[in-house]
Amino acid sequence: MKKRKIPMRKDIVTGEMMPKRQLIRVVKNKEDQVSLDPTGKKPGRGAYIAINVDIAKRAKKEKTFEKAFHVQLDDTFYDELIKYADHLQARQELFGNDK
């Protein structure tokens, strides 16, 4: 059986390369709106962050996505990101690394 290639992406906060399935995609569309992309298929420029609450909190402190996308973001976006990362991290602990 042929071994499948695992797509890798870089975590924007830590700079570490990780499998795409272990990351959260954040996307900026043409109207400069930044949002979470649970499907990974929204159109726009994407950036990835690890499914880790501590890394999400670090992104909020360092305003990582504001720098990456060159837009102003309020704290509600980062709070939503932290909440979503916490949700996915809990799912991984319960069900393993597969989404």
Results as ranks from 00 to 15, higher is better:
Arg45Ser: 13
Leu94Ser: 11
Met17Trp: 15
Phe69Leu: 02
Met17Ile: 11
Thr64Asn: 00
Val27Ile: 11
Lys28Gln: 13
Pro7Asp: 14
Asp54Cys: 09
Lys2Gly: 15
Lys3Gly: 00
Lys3Leu: 09
Asp54Glu: 15
Glu31Arg: 13
Arg25Met: 02
Val27Glu: 02
Asp98Ser: 15
Ala50Phe: 00
Lys20Arg: 13
Gln22Thr: 10
Tyr84Ile: 00
Phe65Arg: 03
Lys42Arg: 15
Gln33Asn: 12
Gln22Pro: 05
Gln72Arg: 08
Lys57Leu: 11
Leu94Phe: 10
Arg45Val: 12
Glu62Tyr: 01
Tyr78Val: 04
Asp74Pro: 06
Phe95Ala: 05
Ile55Glu: 00
Asp11Thr: 07
Lys3Ile: 10
Asp79Phe: 06
Gln72Asp: 02
Pro7Met: 06
Lys61Leu: 04
Asn29Ser: 12
Glu16Pro: 02
Arg4Gln: 15
Leu73Phe: 00
Glu66Cys: 10
Ala56Pro: 07
Lys5Asn: 08
Leu81Thr: 00
Thr76Met: 03
Asp98Glu: 15
Arg21Cys: 05
Phe65Trp: 07
Gln92Phe: 13
Val71Gly: 01
Asp37Gln: 06
His87Met: 13
Lys10Pro: 07
Arg25Pro: 05
Asn29Thr: 10
Lys30Tyr: 12
Gly46Ser: 03
Asp74Arg: 06
Val34Gln: 06
Pro38Arg: 04
Ile24Val: 15
Ile12Tyr: 07
Pro43Glu: 10
Lys57Gly: 02
Pro7Arg: 09
Arg91Gly: 07
Asp98Asn: 15
Leu36Asn: 07
Glu93Leu: 10
Tyr78Met: 06
Met17Gly: 01
Arg91Trp: 12
Asp86Gly: 12
Thr76Arg: 12
Glu16Ala: 08
Met8Thr: 09
Glu66Tyr: 08
Ala85Ser: 13
Gln92Tyr: 11
Glu31His: 11
Phe95His: 12
Phe95Ser: 09
